[in-house]
Amino acid sequence: MNLDINGKTFQIDADPTTPLLYILRDQLQLNGAKFGCGLGQCGACTVIVDKQPVFSCITPVSALQGRKIRTIEGLGTLENPGPVQRAFIEEQAAQCGYCIPGMMMRAQALLEQNPAPSKSDIRRYMNANLCRCGTHMRILRAVERAAAFVKDGGKGGTAG
């Protein structure tokens, strides 16, 4: 089976029913997507498939062949973070940070669909993802800041 992840093709060998999350973490050593519930209730495992945020914990790899999968590792690196990552760093939008990769992928999907979301658009869109540390206010601000970065061509902000 072949998977297209962050623009690279990976050959994987797995039971076709295996949810993507386990392939990402266990086989491809991509840590971004996290296991939170395995039930599609919390969003810790969110990745982008084609243009939509998807819970990787309940999406079997057999459904993903030929589709474009993106994880936070595809948004930027420690040395060169992307706009959403920069926005989260600048807003200090993390406490434990466990929910944050899923938040960022959902935010990225939102901004690609709607580059200028209103505050209530952001809340509504982010509602599928849970945070237990109560970082919500900062996450909301980070999404707004990321929208501003995207607006000025991803140039804004300073790298963390």
Binding site: P16, T17, P19, I58, T59, S62, A63, G66
Partner: peptide, 28 residues
């Protein structure tokens, strides 16, 4: 035995493997 169930069910269906309903059921 999920994959076994899936394999058996897959026989009943002539759909392409990437859109196989049984595998989706089992994984989702």
């Amino acid at each position: 035995s999920v994959s076994e169930v899936q394999r058996q069910d897959a026989k009943k269906s002539d759909l392409a493997p990437q859109s196989n309903g049984a595998a989706i059921y089992a994984g989702s």
